[in-house]
Design a protein around this nucleic acid. Structure first.
Lengths: 204, 204
DNA sequence: ACAGTTCTCTACCATTTGGTAGACGCATTT
DNA sequence: AAATGCGTCTACCAAATGGTAGAGAACTGT
C-alpha cells in the first residue's frame, strides 16, 4: 500500500523519476529542487511524482537508499575483483567510483548533501554506508600494522581519501578553474594524477 | 545610491546580514536559504535585508565578494609569514584555512557552491580567486622543477589538494561517520593527519 | 524647534512550493 | 458488456518565496 514495487512490473515511470531525482538532488541540492522540476525532467506532471512517492520526503528517502545501494554495490565489486594489495585495491575503488562520478557527479554529490539533510535522512544514509566504512577502516588499520600502508590514524585517513576523491569528482568547476579540459585525455590525466596523489599519500 | 557603504558609519546591520548570509549560504546552499531566514537570524525583518541589498541576487554577489576577499587575505598572509619552503608554506596555508574552516565551514562551503551558482556569479567568484590560483600553480610548478615537490601536473595537484582540504573541512558529518570527535584533541589530530597526508602526497 | 536623512517597520502582491481531491482513460478480469 | 484497478491527468489550496510601496521612528545639522 505504500506505493512500493510489490507487483514486479513497476519499472518505467517510477524508476525514471528516481533517476531524475538522483541527478537533480545530487547536483543542485535537495532543498533547491522542486517536484515540478523533477516531473518536467521526466515528462510528467507533479501529481504523477506524488502518486509514486507519497511526499517529497519519501522521494528523498528512496533516492538516498537507491544511491547508497548502488554505491555499495559498485565499490564492493571493485574491491572483490582487485588483487589483495592495499594500493591496488584503493586504485580499484577509485577507478570504480571515479569513472561514473566525473561524468555524473550526482551520485557522490548526494553524499555531500549529508550535512544538509534532515537528521533522520542523514542517519538512514549513514546506516546504509556504515558497514562498508567500518570494514574499510579495519582493512586500512590492518594494512598499516602490516607495514603496507603509511602508519597513521586509519579513520582520518579514510575520511581524507574520501574527501579527495569526492571533492575532485563533484566539483568539475574547480578543475576548469585550474585550466583542466573535460575531454578523454583530460579524464585519463586526472585519474592518473589522482591515483598518484593517493598512492603517495598512503604508501609507507 | 546602490546601497553600498559610502557614508562610512554603515557597519552594524549590513555587516550582520552579510555574516549571517555567509553562514547560511555556505552551509545550506544559496537556493535553499530564504531572505526571511537570514532576516530572522539577524533579528530583523526581511524588508530590512532588502533595504541593504536590493535583491537576493545582490546579496549573493556581496556575500561571494566578501568571502572571496577574506579567503584571499587569510591565505596570502599565511603564505607571506611562512618560510620559503614548499611543504612549510603548504602547512601554513592549511593551518590558516583550516582553523576557522572546521569551526565555521561556511567560508569554504561557499566555494563548494560554485557549480550551483548562476554563471555570472560563478564567473565573478572565479575572477576573484583566479590570480591567487594562478600564482599557486606557478609556485608549485617551479618547486617541482626544482625537485622540492613530487613531479606531476601542478594544476591537477592544486585541485587535488584543494579538494582534500575543502572536503574535509566542509563535511564534518563524514568525520563523525568515521568516529571522529569534534573536541580540541580531535581537531589537533585531524590537522596533524591532514598535514601528514598532504606532505606525503606532495613530497618528492 | 524643524527639515532632512537614515533605517526599520507594516501591509501587500504575484509566483512558486508541497500537497489534496477527484475525474478520466485504459487495460484486465469476470 | 460490466466491473476493477492502475496510472496519469486537471483543478485546487494554504503556506512560503522574492519583491514593492510607503509609513513612521530616530538621529542629524541648522
Amino acid at each position: 500500500m505504500t506505493s512500493a514495487g510489490s507487483s514486479g512490473a513497476t519499472l518505467p515511470t517510477r524508476q525514471r523519476i528516481l533517476d531524475a531525482a538522483i541527478d537533480q538532488f545530487g547536483t543542485r541540492g535537495v532543498d533547491a529542487v522542486s517536484l515540478d522540476e523533477i516531473a518536467r525532467d521526466v515528462g510528467v506532471r507533479k501529481q504523477t511524482v506524488l502518486y509514486w512517492f507519497a511526499s517529497k520526503d519519501e522521494l528523498v528517502q528512496a533516492v538516498l537508499a537507491s544511491a547508497a545501494a548502488e554505491l555499495v554495490l559498485v565499490i564492493e565489486a571493485a574491491v572483490r575483483s582487485a588483487p589483495n594489495e592495499p594500493l591496488a585495491r584503493i586504485d580499484a575503488v577509485v577507478g570504480a567510483v571515479f569513472r561514473p562520478a566525473v561524468r555524473r557527479p550526482a551520485l557522490l554529490g548526494l553524499l555531500r548533501e549529508l550535512g544538509r539533510l534532515s537528521p533522520e535522512h542523514a542517519a538512514r544514509l549513514s546506516a546504509h554506508l556504515a558497514p562498508m566504512i567500518d570494514r574499510a577502516i579495519d582493512y586500512l588499520a590492518a594494512e598499516m600494522t602490516a607495514g603496507r600502508l603509511r602508519r597513521s590514524d586509519p579513520r582520518l585517513i579514510a575520511a581524507l581519501a574520501y574527501a579527495t576523491v569526492t571533492g575532485i569528482a563533484t566539483e568539475p568547476e574547480v578543475l576548469v578553474a585550474v585550466g583542466w579540459r573535460a575531454d578523454t585525455a583530460g579524464l585519463r590525466a586526472l585519474r592518473s594524477e589522482l591515483r598518484g596523489f593517493l598512492r603517495a599519500a598512503l604508501a609507507p
